[in-house]
Computed example of a mutant assay.
Amino acid sequence: MKVYVFKSLPPFLWGYTRDIRAMWALEECGIAYETIGLDCGPNGLQDETWFEKISPFKQIPAIDDDGYILTESGAILLYLAEKSGKLIPSDLQGRAQVYRWLITSLNNIEPFALPVLFADLQGDSNPHLKALRPWHVDILGRFLPKIDQIVQNQPFLMGSSFTVADIAFTCVLREIRKTEILAGYPNIVKYRSRCEERPAFGKVLDAYEDRLGIARGSAR
């Protein structure tokens, strides 16, 4: 399987990009893959025009499974889980709960976590986004306390089993890992550490830093 990833990024994007999600799932699922690296353009998009035939919005990640092309990190995570039979329950209702938690991460958490990240990155150069930051933090406060309670008594979102929903949620949490927000949710902090201590994640992040040519720990 081919996976399209970044091979160069501006420093402010190190460790935040969504190719980490796809590679983490590939490692956890035991699927052999090769990476195809692209350079991040000035607007965060790829300059190679050929890539638009693979990813219509020229976004990373994308996978090519023997000619079957798929984009969007959430769809890729679910595809890899279904293909391998790993990181997802075998019964319909169990799988639906994984879909639910993955969608929660991408629909309820990330739309408010990303603006916080961008507000912090842009600072005074974007006063409008800076002014909206407290509102985005307040919205996150609708969701994170409930999840903090859930992972207080179980290691992962689905209970004892690590799934692709945990990959999605952990990677979304990484978008606000350098803010003050997570300090108010000690169980989520422990949960994130537990997920990132998995050998597959460590292997992926090491390879990510090596591919970008940056010092070890720069994307942590």
Rank of each mutant, 00 (worst) to 15 (best):
C29P: 02
L129R: 11
M1G: 09
A165C: 05
A165P: 01
R100D: 05
I214E: 02
S193T: 09
D120F: 00
G15P: 03
L212M: 14
I76S: 09
A81W: 00
P10N: 00
I60A: 01
G67Y: 02
N153T: 12
G217D: 08
R142P: 05
Q152G: 13
Y79H: 09
A119H: 12
L45C: 11
D148W: 05
S55W: 02
R100V: 02
L87K: 08
R177L: 05
L140C: 05
L212G: 11
T35K: 15
K53H: 15
Q122S: 13
S73H: 12
L129W: 05
V172D: 10
V3M: 09
Q154R: 14
F12Q: 12
T49N: 13
D19F: 08
E72V: 00
L205M: 15
Y33T: 06
K146Y: 03
Y16F: 13
Q152D: 14
R198M: 11
W135T: 15
R142I: 06
L140D: 08
V98R: 06
I76T: 08
K7S: 14
P42C: 05
G123A: 13
P115E: 03
R100C: 04
L78A: 04
L80G: 00
W24M: 13
F12A: 08
R211Y: 11
S73V: 12
N153I: 04
W14E: 13
L92C: 04
F118M: 10
L77N: 13
F143R: 03
G94R: 05
G37D: 02
Q149L: 09
D206G: 04
S55D: 00
A200N: 10
R177D: 12
A183Y: 07
I88S: 07
K83W: 00
T163I: 02
A75D: 10
L132Y: 06
D124P: 04
K190L: 02
W50T: 05
R100E: 13
L114M: 08
I181C: 04
V189S: 13
K83L: 07
S105L: 03
A119N: 08
K178A: 12
W50D: 13
A81M: 04
G159R: 14
V172L: 09
I147D: 05
A25K: 10
C29A: 15
F57G: 04
Y99M: 04
G159V: 12
L140R: 03
Q93T: 06
E72F: 06
R220H: 05
Q59N: 09
V98D: 00
P199D: 12
L182Q: 04
E34L: 07
G94N: 06
L102H: 00
L114R: 12
V137Y: 00
I63K: 11
G94L: 03
R174W: 09
P155M: 06
E209K: 14
S218H: 11
F51V: 01
L132V: 01
G15S: 04
H136N: 15
I69M: 02
E27L: 01
P111H: 07
S8N: 12
W135Q: 15
R211F: 13
